[in-house]
Design a protein around this nucleic acid. Structure first.
Lengths: 236, 236
DNA sequence: GTCAAAATATGATAAAAATCATATAGGCAC
DNA sequence: GTGCCTATATGATTTTTATCATATTTTGAC
């Protein structure tokens, strides 16, 4: 197979224009390239832990990451799902706080690390990057506020349907065009929906009985997307 | 009573250093001052409506505003409470979308309006303002993500206690040191907590019976703040 | 002041969801 | 392969919460 891009530099990174750095000036991209550190995180490995101090931001070149809070009783709440081109770790860094969430690789993932001082200084000099950053934060805030409304007002059945559609939006389908392109445990799905694991399992079984999905271990196939959209009862 | 500040200009605004504009450069503050339009919104009046196009940002000089989504079934979800020094309307503007929430004055409120083009252009030129804006967005995102976790995991009793503490953090107490300095209907409290109005009323009655609060119409007095914190079961 | 409308309060009931219990299946070390 | 551990599944039960019903109180117009 032909190697289309040289992944080893930020200048030629295949995610560059698919990321918050899309409008960053060339000189700053070069600067970032010089100081970045790339790593592979194996499935299940932790990028950073809730409560620890941020030293920079992470940029996903390839792979999948979940970002989750630990609730007061120790229950996980997944607040974001991330993929190639996504940046993470910026929230705590910009607020000047410790991480309020943990990041864990959902599969083997290639990630570059940009040191805090460099990221902040580029952010202050490059208005294009700063503006994209604000857009990103605004979009995340919007999603979070929508989620608040849905958590407060929608029954679990609708939220599960919505979550499956969200997973599809984020990671898409596999080559067959119907299998969700990520492997999540039932517990993780429950922690995305915000419900008990048993409830998530039960409702997935109902969706299966209704022919909306097909379940094969952690593989989930969406058989009737329209029906799923109807079940999610989405207006927006 | 002596007039301590001249409220009519941004340069001398008593909220200037209590707002996102605290680090903005003088020249840009002057520019904003020339183009701003100040208004008084009476209690219940709408600043902007969900679904309409943003034309700029609003800056509260004095008063209180609620920001709320309308859920799919028409139920209100209050997502932010705002006070003097707070800016609103920036989320949709930065995302380049229509408003995803409506803003309504909770009492007579003085508000200045800054046109979109000016705000964006200053934001692109003034790194200090841009950085404060990113901090603000990051802080709001943090709060939203915490709220998501609590909505997903905490029972309504704890969430109501937390909401009362949140109201106190936001608007403080009246001169007596115990009365929450805002008048909200039971329905609005329920729409902050994310529950049915009857449930909010019922639990407030329980708090009253337990001597945690005193209720006098829309006046809520916090009698036992420690007990309220315990009831909220907060870890963070 | 009266009156009507809306807000608050509270009980009864129904619905939703969590928890508990137990069974079965799948993954993995050996 | 066996055995063990964990994840998934499903039923039974309890708890939580919403909904419905109906007083009672408050508010505001007049």
């Amino acid at each position: 197979m032909l190697q289309m891009h040289d992944h080893s530099t930020c200048q030629s990174c295949n995610q560059r224009f698919n990321s918050v750095f899309c409008k960053a000036r060339e000189e700053y991209v070069n600067l970032i390239n010089e100081q970045k550190v790339c790593n592979v995180y194996r499935k299940g490995q932790t990028l950073f832990n809730e409560g620890s101090n941020p030293f920079g931001v992470f940029c996903i070149n390839e792979g999948k990451v979940k970002l989750s809070h630990l609730g007061d009783d120790g229950k996980e709440q997944i607040i974001r799902l991330l993929k190639q081109g996504d940046v993470l770790g910026y929230r705590a860094l910009l607020s000047g706080e410790r991480y309020s969430a943990s990041a864990v690789a959902l599969e083997d993932t290639q990630i570059c690390f940009i040191p805090k001082e460099l990221f902040i200084s580029v952010l202050k000099q490059d208005a294009g990057l700063a503006f994209e950053m604000m857009k990103l934060l605004s979009d995340e805030l919007h999603k979070a506020e929508l989620k608040i409304t849905h958590l407060a007002q929608k029954p679990i059945r609708e939220r599960l349907a919505e979550t499956l559609l969200f997973i599809k939006e984020t990671y898409g389908y596999e080559d067959d065009g119907i299998t969700l392109n990520v492997r999540l445990s039932r517990e993780e799905i429950a922690n995305l929906v915000g419900t008990a694991t048993e409830s998530a399992i039960r409702l997935l079984s109902e969706f299966k009985k209704d022919g909306i999905v097909e379940l094969d271990g952690k593989k989930i196939k969406i058989l009737k997307q329209k029906e799923l959209i109807r079940t999610a009862n989405l207006q927006d």
